[in-house]
Design a protein around this nucleic acid. Structure first.
Length: 584
RNA sequence: GCACCUGUAGCUCAGCUGGAUAGAGUACCUGUCUACGAAACAGGGGGUCGCACGUUCGAAUCGUGCCAGGUGCACCA
């Protein structure tokens, strides 16, 4: 609806340019906003105020001229000029009714796809396989997954890329330790069951023994040169570690599969070529024995240039090299139009340097974009980086288990007439949803404070509140013995009371919100919307009897609003990677 | 030292391609259940939008300079 009004305004502006009212060189931008206050109508524009100066007339006079120039349309029933020169639009309610009715007839709630579908690579989760996944991987995994789902929904071709760290320096250490363990005849699979423990033990050996250290360094080199024995050890290690990851993804209802894994090792063969290509283009310089790319764009103090190191003096490659290789692959093999990196904000500088180098080296087509989607850290209740009670880094799997346990306890204490099986299932869904939603609902860019109490609370902008709202709507539909199919197809919509209008308007905004999430990579916008929808529904439900409505028509109409609310909540939560519950 | 991010109600956070009296939630206070699920709803108090200049008809939003906190800056990823 916003788009349609914007089009009308554009048409009006064009006529005014033709009339000579607006100078041809005047700069303006059509902006249509939803009003906060109903007395200002449904939509408003500040166009007249923007044009006042170039037209050399007072804004209210311009506003009147704009209104006079608007093409006839049955969309708008009334316009007002308000305040310093806002134009307020009161919309025809039939438009709203049509939108609601159409949404019910369709699986995707009649939301259109984008005009120009793109190929979008989404790089997210990307844990280091040397250790088990920990809290640090939570945000990338969850936010990236929500955005990937949303981009897919709006019609893009999404290629998920789990750029796991499996080729770095610390792998030599792990391989050496694995080798030792095998010689001693230990059961390796048992040893690796707790990766964290295994890593710490390996680190201990590394620090205490020179022989071990030497062996570890040898193994890195032989591994990277493709030695079969090393590769087999490495493969074994990878399989087990990846198994842990997949288990976590499944528990978290994250859509990543083994198909999406393309780790650092996948680019190994291309790394020497990256160096030679950079060299051929004259971008490479030797500095203190390392091969670097320097750029005027990145300076340190005293104007000294900041290097992007792509090859160490011992010949080893770094993650910058791998990232460059990945960029080239994503551009020329995957044909990406956009590449989104859901990676910690602390790596902002690294990405700036890598992106800049990639552009200069022609590793990316001009039409494509590389976008770092940074996010802040997870902090504990004390405002410091999140730690376990013992002060260590919290394993992701443990974190989820604790959330599920807490949620299950709450459900059990409140449960009435639920079987044990139902309680366990509800606890699972709520526990996982709580962790995910708490993260998703905060703006991505800032740090966020992790709080069990807040995320599992049944009140406020939380997963439990939304899941409850959904379950309550479904309960009404069950009690009303609604046949969803026939309710969706026929019948009348009559929207009279303020609360009905408010709900219908809110339902109609879904499409717009999802569009913003897709372009900005900001799932919290969807969270805010869903919470508003749920509370708008609660207000409606309080004021407007549904099953006890005055007339059959009114009942059918309100049931339709309830049904669309349920469908919208389910769809929105689904895009966030959160399951819904019919009962709770 | 340089760069990036953050500073909005007691607390947790929205709002930031400038727009109408700055919004939620929570906490606190007051109402509403012989129930279409009260895990809810209605209402109330609570703000120098870090500070100061500037641009503008209009600034939480843009610019500049400070202040405070966080993060990054050469062979780890």
């Amino acid at each position: 609806m916003i788009e349609q009004v914007a089009e009308l305004l554009q048409a009006a502006a064009n006529t005014m340019v033709d009339n000579g009212v607006i100078p041809a060189d005047a700069k303006y931008r059509i902006q249509v906003d939803r009003t906060k206050d109903k007395s200002h109508g449904d939509l408003a524009t500040n166009l007249a105020m923007m044009l006042a100066k170039p037209c050399k007339q007072n804004p209210r006079a311009i506003a009147q001229l704009i209104i006079d120039s608007l093409p006839a349309s049955d969309l708008i029933v009334k316009t007002d000029i308000a305040g310093p020169g806002f134009i307020n639009f009161f919309l025809n309610q039939n438009q709203l009714l049509d939108t609601i009715a159409a949404a019910l007839t369709n699986e995707r709630l009649n939301m259109s796809s984008v005009d120009q579908p793109q190929v979008i690579v989404v790089d997210y989760s990307s844990p280091n396989l040397a250790k088990e996944m920990h809290v640090g991987h939570l945000r990338s995994t969850i936010i990236g997954d929500a955005v990937a789902r949303t981009l897919e929904f709006v019609g893009h071709t999404v290629i998920r890329q789990n750029h796991v760290g499996n080729w770095g320096t610390q792998f030599g250490m792990l391989l050496a330790f694995l080798e030792e363990a095998k010689k001693k005849g230990d059961k390796v699979s048992m040893e690796l069951a707790d990766l964290e423990h295994f890593y710490r033990q390996a680190k201990l050996r590394f620090d205490e023994s020179e022989d071990f250290k030497t062996r570890a360094r040898e193994l890195v080199v032989t591994l990277q040169s493709g030695d079969e024995y090393c590769l087999s050890l490495w493969q074994e290690f990878n399989d087990i570690s990846l198994g842990h990851c997949q288990a976590t993804y499944e528990k978290l209802n994250v859509s990543l599969t083994v198909e999406d894994i393309r780790g650092e090792s996948a680019y190994n063969d291309d790394l020497p070529k990256i160096i030679s290509d950079l060299s051929e283009q004259g971008l490479l310089q030797d500095s203190e024995g390392a091969k670097c790319v320097f750029s005027d764009d990145f300076k340190r103090k005293d104007g000294e240039l900041l290097p992007l190191i792509v090859q160490k003096k011992d010949g080893g490659f770094l993650y910058a090299t791998t990232d460059l290789a990945a960029i080239r692959y994503r551009n020329f093999v995957l044909q990406a139009d956009r590449v989104l990196y859901f990676v910690d904000a602390r790596q902002a500088l690294h990405f700036q340097q890598v992106f800049s180098t990639a552009k200069k080296a022609g590793f990316i087509r001009d039409s494509a974009t590389l976008e770092h989607m940074p996010f802040g850290m997870v902090l504990g209740d004390d405002g410091k980086p999140f730690k376990t009670r013992e002060g260590g880094v919290a394993k992701l799997a443990d974190l989820i288990d604790e959330s599920i346990k807490r949620a299950t306890d709450t459900v059990r204490s409140r449960a009435s007439g639920l079987t044990e099986e139902e309680i366990v299932n509800i606890g699972n869904v709520v526990g996982v949803a709580a962790v995910k939603y708490a993260d998703l609902s905060k703006s991505r860019t800032s740090d966020y404070q992790f709080s069990w109490e807040q995320m599992l609370s049944l009140e406020g902008n939380t997963a439990p509140y939304l899941l409850y709202a959904y379950a309550r709507v479904k309960s009404i539909l069950r009690r009303g013995e609604v046949d969803e199919q026939s309710l969706s197809q026929g019948g009348v919509l009559q929207i009279e009371m303020d609360q009905e209008v408010a709900l219908a308007n809110k339902l109609a905004q879904c499409h717009e919100v999802i569009g913003h999430v897709a372009t900005k990579g900001m799932p919290h916008l969807l969270c805010t919307y869903l919470f508003e929808l749920a509370s708008t529904f609660s207000t409606f439900f309080e004021a407007c009897p549904v099953l006890k409505a005055d007339t059959e028509e009114q009942k059918q109409s309100r049931l339709k609003l309830a049904l669309l609310t349920a469908k919208t909540l389910q769809l929105g939560l689904g895009l966030l990677g959160i399951q819904t519950l019919e009962k709770m």
